[in-house]
Design a protein around this nucleic acid. Structure first.
Lengths: 338, 338
DNA sequence: TTGTATGCGTTATCAT
DNA sequence: ATGATAACGCATACAA
């Protein structure tokens, strides 16, 4: 069933059928109806490949994410997918893994598929060494590139980010304002966001005229989702002689591990120390007590990103950087709700 | 940059370039090298749309899932994506939502994109009323359809499922064998898997010659991921006068809610009652105590499914139904580890 | 082993 | 308002 079959049955040329299909105004209403009726009757749909060849686009968008089974990235993919679909685009998903080579290869794979645009989900895509981001800039030479929670200042690259710096700073200030200044800070990544958060943490101390001792900063390099291992990690830190009255995890899972540590060692949260997480994911409410966390507004972030993406594809001139605020969600692991 | 440019530069015809590109053996090594060198030099890659038009395939596969932000479905999508990529296929993701119309529309969308095959992720796709599954059978008329954790007996539909019946039965027997027979069973779906699990639960009682009172079966219809609401739900049941010494959640989140209920009301788990979940997802270890759960072998399930998918596309004759076993993971919420 | 010619199903540019 | 026809870039049957 092709456009020729329809044109024959309708007694018109394929050009007219094509016009009807694409909503061209230059078609007599009567002709349009006749053609539409036949299309309906035959259940005809245009061949997407041929259409793609002609238009040089299949309205497909490549979504790159390190690991779509990650609870946070999965949510991002979900919102992005929904918005893209609503805009008439087809998302092609590619989970790249966390290493650079995998990302490069995935990106090239999608470019070969002739996607209309690329969406890079998560700050993990921005490497500290700018040279390692060159492949992204190169890609931007072919199609517009959207970054979620990452910044690269380059033509045809559009960034949508949460103000993680400010959110983490506010979170920290909540504790400092209560006089809690010995805060154990746990992080597990050197990604763009992670660095922003750490800077926010530092900045809170500066604002209060306090000096932050580096020994309170601890990088966890174990299994991402192994709560037990994280708990042990905290235990090690405590045994090394460090004392603290709060723990901030740069990601929720670290905070969950901190609560586990408390339970395992008979400490009370927030009695003996407060615990805070980041991302406001489901696991903050699975924990006991539930964990105060930052909602970084993933949904509006994704909505904004896709709007920019589609806008750019439509030739609109849009700002290359959008920053949205985070929001602190108070729960029982802290005494911050006043 | 097209195949014509390459052919000119190499001084051969486009047919030869095409042969080189597609690994045809009938090319003189010298010619092949010359062509490959030029391709390399120019960084040429064939146009995917034109290729798709000619071959009537872009090696793309539609992945349908109700909600890829669901912790379990996200993992499934992850494994499936990985295996498809490894097989040289491109996954087009479509989150359908849980209602039938959304599923139908999504499926038709992907079919219009001319995917080579469809993968339906999760038992939610199988409606109790077989008539409602007709659109899936219709789709199977066009491309092979793969079902993860669902069964439809129909030509060109291939099913890969976990033996949820047996796994839930085994889980229940662990309790019955300990003399715990008043088990509160929580479920939140009437999907294919959910029914299988419930049947497994019932069957365990039958095997032991016990009669199961229907008042122990409770359907939770609230927000999927609202732990607080689930906790309240259990509280209501208890207040209605039902007494129990174990709670089985047909999904982990229900078990997490059960543990919350215990904490909120001063009960000890597993002292006052045991708690069991299903899916062995991350949240079982975020809970305190950690929750005994069934690992339904999602990774091997997905690997098997994709292997079948690619096999079928290659014309192999493969079984239309594969059943893999689940595995109980013992944790502190039960006294079952002997 | 290599080249020629045709088809794949559209869209778009001309004419009419 | 409508029709004829040329791209679009590749694969492939057929010739040589």
């Amino acid at each position: 069933m092709t456009i020729y079959d329809i044109s024959k049955q309708a007694g018109v040329s394929i050009a007219t059928v094509s016009r009807v299909l694409n909503g061209s105004s230059n078609v007599r209403p009567k002709t349009r109806k006749k053609v539409l009726d036949i299309i309906e009757k035959c259940g005809y749909t245009p061949n997407a490949f041929a259409r793609g060849l002609g238009l040089n686009s299949m309205k497909s968008i490549g979504i790159l994410c390190a690991d779509c089974s990650d609870i946070y990235l999965a949510k991002a993919v979900y919102y992005i997918e929904k918005n893209l679909r609503a805009g008439g685009y087809h998302p092609i998903l590619c989970c790249t893994g966390y290493d650079l080579d995998g990302k490069k290869e995935s990106l090239s794979l999608l470019l070969n598929q002739h996607v209309d645009s690329l969406i890079l989900v998560g700050s993990h895509f921005i490497e500290p060494d700018m040279e390692d981001n060159q492949y992204i800039c190169d890609a931007a030479g072919q199609v517009p590139v959207m970054l979620l929670n990452g910044i690269i200042d380059y033509p045809n690259i559009y960034c949508t980010v949460c103000n993680d710096f400010q959110a983490m700073k506010d979170l920290t200030l909540l504790l400092l304002d209560q006089g809690i200044t010995d805060i154990l800070y746990l992080y597990n990544s050197y990604s763009y966001s992670s660095i922003k958060k750490l800077n926010g943490f530092r900045s809170a101390y500066e604002d209060k005229g306090l000096t932050l001792s580096e020994e309170y900063l601890h990088y966890y390099s174990g299994m991402r989702e192994d709560v037990e291992e994280i708990s042990d990690f905290v235990s090690q830190i405590e045994k090394s002689g460090l004392s603290f009255h709060a723990i901030i995890g740069a990601e929720d899972i670290l905070a969950v591990g901190a609560v586990k540590y408390a339970k395992a060692n008979g400490f009370s949260v927030p009695g003996d120390f407060a615990v805070m997480g980041y991302n406001n994911s489901l696991i903050t409410t699975c924990s006991e007590p539930e964990i105060t966390s930052v909602d970084n507004g993933l949904e509006p972030l994704c909505t904004q990103l896709v709007a920019t993406c589609i806008g750019v594809l439509n030739g609109e001139d849009l700002p290359s950087k959008t920053v949205l605020p985070g929001k602190i969600i108070h729960r029982a692991s802290t005494n911050t709700l006043k």
